[in-house]
Simulated scan of single mutants.
Amino acid sequence: MSKSVFSKKYHRFRQLLIQARKVAKLTQSELSEKLSRPQSYVSKYERGERRLDLIEFLEVAEVLEVEPATFIKQLLEDKEED
């Protein structure tokens, strides 16, 4: 079990978060404002400089109007294709 933020799975997780933000037509600044966090918070997790814990992920998913279970299912399906 990898703990690295640089694993393929975590890289794909970050890609899916970026994609969801863009689908929501939000900039990092707009998303961070909705999360009541600094813009650097979004920038750092999108670049892999910090990891999101489960509660943080759920907060981001709510703002992006992404169903967490669907998001995770997509992440797991992508893994199977590797």
Rank of each mutant, 00 (worst) to 15 (best):
L58N: 05
L52Y: 06
E65F: 00
F57L: 07
R50C: 02
I55W: 03
L54K: 08
I55M: 06
D53Q: 13
S40R: 06
P68A: 12
E46Y: 01
E62K: 13
V60W: 01
E67C: 09
G48T: 11
E56N: 13
K44F: 04
A69V: 09
E49G: 14
R51T: 08
R51Q: 06
V42R: 02
Y45K: 03
P68Y: 03
L64K: 14
L54S: 12
Y41K: 14
E62C: 04
E46M: 02
V66W: 00
E56S: 12
L58Q: 06
S43Y: 11
R47Y: 10
R47W: 06
Y45N: 04
S40I: 08
V60K: 00
G48I: 05
R50Q: 10
R50H: 04
L58V: 04
T70C: 10
D53S: 12
R47V: 06
S43C: 14
D53I: 14
S43Q: 15
I55D: 10
F57N: 05
R51D: 09
A61F: 06
A61N: 07
G48A: 07
K44W: 00
S40D: 07
L52A: 07
E65L: 00
E49D: 15
R50S: 11
R50K: 12
I55K: 10
L64C: 15
F57V: 03
L54P: 00
S43P: 08
E59G: 06
V60T: 05
E67N: 15
Y41A: 13
Y41P: 05
A69H: 12
E46H: 09
E46P: 03
R51V: 05
K44A: 07
E46A: 04
R47E: 15
R51W: 06
P68G: 11
S40G: 09
L64E: 11
A69S: 15
K44C: 07
P68M: 07
I55G: 04
F57C: 05
G48C: 07
S40W: 02
V66N: 00
G48F: 02
K44P: 01
L64V: 13
S43G: 15
Y41H: 15
L58Y: 04
Y45V: 08
E59Y: 01
A61P: 00
T70F: 13
E46R: 00
S43A: 14
A69T: 12
